[in-house]
Design a binder for these strands. Structure first.
Lengths: 200, 200
DNA sequence: AAATGAAGACGAGACGTATCGATTCGAAAG
DNA sequence: CTTTCGAATCGATACGTCTCGTCTTCATTT
């Protein structure tokens, strides 16, 4: 017999109002004081809730921020399907760059990736619920291209994903120059079989 | 008349012994307790020095770690010059990967990049004294290739640098799969003019 | 009755500053 | 050359502050 893990006995329902107030406060505070100045107590005060309400539902402030990013910013995952690998890749890059160019999103992503390095348990959650879905989305695009024989010889889907996401993250984390349209074209150039790009 | 700005009055000389003890302690502690568990007080205790001695010479524990990495690990910056762009690029990648594959180095780099996101002032120092020299080294390699007309059309040196370092850092930070020799070849494939690679 | 809510007290731990007496260097004085 | 003396360092530790995460209280909701 497994003791009932979920479905706690009656009680009171989780307050959706408090949940949104906490996420909103976190999203606003990160822009005002930065991640270093973000504290659980600050989020509780700003949202008009108690610390325990936050600790009850989120394991750490990074998880609150990750939740806030997903809820307040619209971090959709694009899976373009135009019929051409080059066009799909370009569309994926443009959609990703458009997101990363929003300053609040860029700041939040930097903080999440940083915390993932320092807090190993959060790192697991970040990779599983944020990084992996995006990598899988590009994986679908690349698998379609591979089955059509459009991938450049000598380049595996895994390496292409490393290059695509690596370049985006490097611009965010290291150079702090947000990715631009020129970089889209250069990545497409590097990752596309020359001569087959754009039938036109 | 300029009042003597430099040349401080006599005083006592900085203790090289203490300096090394502090860097050694930091390098050992990061492997034992991780960056999250690394504290100034812990470094002081392990090194047999006082907190003030650390605060007098380093602005933050991240700076101590960056110094320790540079001193204890040998983070040389390769600038290969074989006469061929493809071979230079391959040599640069292999040298960089060899460094990044050392677990203590990989852990330290992850911590430094993370702290650079959270502490803006340290971020400046990290970019100026760690990232920029390595990017400049690759820049020299790429400039030689450009002057020989070996760079693929449509790929600027800046984009190539973004792709090279981006891919390395992404493997370190996001996938935590250390870069391997296969990735070297795939990067060379993506960043080399097909057909001109390796005159054989 | 039971789980939730806001509010806040609490101890632990790390930060960064300040201060102490002792030590060590360099320059000036003898 | 020797002595003296000021300055900056050293190890060590006290101090106040901050944040964390837990725990407690009491009211509210189902």
């Amino acid at each position: 017999m497994s003791d009932r893990p979920v479905q706690p006995r009656p009680g009171r329902k989780r307050s959706e109002e408090s949940r949104l107030a906490i996420l909103t406060a976190a999203f606003e505070l990160i822009a005002e004081v930065g991640y270093a100045g973000l504290t659980i107590e600050g989020i509780a005060a700003r949202s008009g809730t108690g610390k325990q309400t936050i600790y009850r539902w989120w394991p750490s402030k990074a998880d609150v921020l990750m939740d806030a990013m997903a809820t307040k910013a619209e971090l959709y995952v694009p899976i373009p399907d135009t019929g051409s690998y080059a066009a799909d890749l370009r569309a994926f890059l443009e959609a990703s760059f458009t997101l990363a160019r929003r300053p609040a999103v860029a700041d939040g992503l930097r903080a999440l990736m940083a915390e993932a390095q320092i807090d190993a348990a959060f790192g697991e959650r970040f990779r599983a619920s944020f990084l992996r879905p995006r990598r899988d989305a590009l994986g679908i695009v690349l698998e379609r291209a591979r089955s059509r024989g459009e991938l450049p010889p000598g380049l595996s889907p895994g390496a292409i994903a490393d290059i695509v996401f690596g370049t985006i993250w490097y611009r965010l984390l290291a150079t702090r120059r947000l990715p631009d349209d020129r970089l889209v074209e250069e990545l497409v150039t590097a990752l596309t079989e020359p001569g087959l790009e754009e039938p036109s």
